[in-house]
Nucleic acid binder design. Structure first.
Length: 281
DNA sequence: CGCCAGGTGCTGA
DNA sequence: TCAGCACATGGC
């Protein structure tokens, strides 16, 4: 058991904000897996208390995962540029953008397309149980996200049997691309947003939105601004009835919010989704 | 039951 | 470049 300083973090909202799909809440703890390590976390005021199944994950790894090195106050000041985002920040001031494993993020968001979060969680859970490595903590079995080599060898039929639907061949094809080294995922953190985005767009089942999600949540590109149906609703605040292409909206957002547009995106997403039946005329 | 979900790929203008 | 369409599945 350990703990680390996490000033003004909103742990539960962050883990439930649709960027990670594997955290489960039970008896006051959030249980998850980082690599081959089972992890449970809980917020106590300005600290994150944690326990791990092995020493591969400790305070440095968790600080990185939760982006605790980032000065959130400064980031929020930089994106707080209009009334809508101001309200979104005020609603959940400790929301954070996680730094997740690029492969798990890529595979997960391929499954997430044109889907709902509840079902996404179930699909990923079944993929992990079928192909992932088991890790255990307190006798509770948890399975890690399968390495690309494992999914590259899975048959489309077997993946479909897990309820992945038409996304099964996409996941398999992209796993092959990564396993063959033709998509150098670990290198994408070091290149610029545009280059990372271009590389990701070469994957089967990856369009603009998924590429932006992976760039933001898995490659550290804080300027990435993924636009799903909820974000399209939030963007009506800026565009009203005007029809606007994905690319034009994304570029507007990057100019409007700056280098941390991705944080603005996460705040707006969480805010709009929380008011799902609100009147945005 | 019908509608919706953190969209993508393909086609035809 | 862009609109229109099919696509699996299950939650609500």
């Amino acid at each position: 058991m350990g703990s680390l300083a996490a000033p003004r973090v909103a742990l539960a909202e962050t883990l439930r904000s649709g960027q990670a799909f594997r955290w489960r809440e039970s008896a006051g703890w959030f249980h998850g897996v980082l690599g081959r390590t089972a992890v449970k976390v809980r917020q106590e005021g300005d600290r994150i208390v944690y326990a791990v199944s092995n020493e591969a994950v400790g305070a440095p790894e968790l600080a990185r995962y939760f982006a605790l090195d980032l000065d959130l106050e400064r980031v929020l000041r930089s994106i707080d540029v209009d009334l809508q985002i101001h309200r979104a920040i005020a609603a959940t001031p400790g929301l954070r953008v996680l730094r997740q494993d690029p492969w798990e993020t890529l595979g997960s968001f391929i499954l997430a397309s044109f889907n709902n979060i509840r079902r996404i969680e179930g699909m990923i859970e079944r993929v992990c149980r079928a192909y992932g490595d088991p890790v255990a903590m307190n006798g509770m079995p948890i399975y890690g996200f399968p390495p690309p080599e494992r999914l590259a060898r899975a048959s489309e039929r077997a993946l479909r049997a897990l309820g992945l639907g038409y996304r099964a061949p996409y996941l398999r094809a992209t796993a092959r691309l990564v396993a063959n080294g033709r998509l150098p995922l670990p290198q994408l953190e070091a290149v610029g947003y545009e280059e990372a985005r271009r590389a990701l767009l070469g994957c089967d089942g990856v369009g603009q939105k998924v590429a932006d999600c992976v760039a933001l949540f898995g490659c550290g590109k804080t300027e990435a601004f993924p636009i799903d149906v909820w974000m399209a609703r939030a963007l009506r605040y800026y565009f009203r009835h005007r029809r606007i292409s994905y690319g034009a909206a994304r570029e507007y957002a990057r100019r409007h919010f700056g280098p941390y547009a991705g944080y603005a995106q996460q705040y707006l997403y969480h805010y709009v989704r929380g008011r799902r039946s609100a009147t945005w005329s």
